[in-house]
């Protein structure tokens, strides 16, 4: 409809969506792989399917034996119930109904360490600054350390 109206006058829509870093992950996934989230690398190349690669569906159908849950903004965003072994890189202070196999507390981007995030309209990205010295590692630091150790 916006497209039709613009034939004669000007009209805009502002799509807003995504929180807890969703828009950022979507943008970065798009430039690194060509596809947004819900892309599998099973076949050694990016393969996008928003339904088959829906992680909730995958877990509900027991199609994964390992869940790595990254949630550095919000302690309330905890992993879903599943039979998969679960590793959580979660904001420090996260409480679980079922304890995950591994929980690595991490800091919050923009509070405990620097970072960058896309606004929910995904047009503009903003810098996140370190506001306190909590000693908590960033997700990047944790993953880099794991990669080093491998």
């Amino acid at each position: 409809m916006i497209k039709e109206i613009n034939a004669t006058t000007r009209s805009n829509g502002l799509p807003i969506g995504g929180k807890e870093g969703d828009t950022t992950v979507n943008a970065v996934a798009s430039w690194q792989s060509g596809y947004p989230m819900r892309t599998t690398f099973n076949r050694r190349f990016p393969d996008y399917d928003p339904f088959l690669n829906d992680s909730k569906r995958i877990l509900a159908n027991d199609e994964s034996d390992l869940l790595i849950w990254v949630s550095s903004f919000n302690t309330a965003v905890t992993p879903p119930q599943s039979s998969a072994n679960t590793i959580v890189l979660g904001r420090s202070g996260m409480q679980f109904e079922t304890e995950p196999e591994v929980y690595i507390p991490v800091g919050v981007p923009g509070i405990d360490h620097e970072g960058r995030t896309f606004r929910s309209d995904s047009v503009v990205s903003v810098p996140l600054r370190k506001l306190r010295d909590s000693g908590l590692p960033s997700v990047f630091e944790v993953l880099s350390a794991v990669e080093q150790a491998l």
Binding site: W31, Q32, S33, G34, Y35, F41, R44, F45, P46
Partner: peptide
Amino acid sequence: RSGTGHAAPST
């Protein structure tokens, strides 16, 4: 690393 794209390739 893997990637895709002809006209708009991944970075």
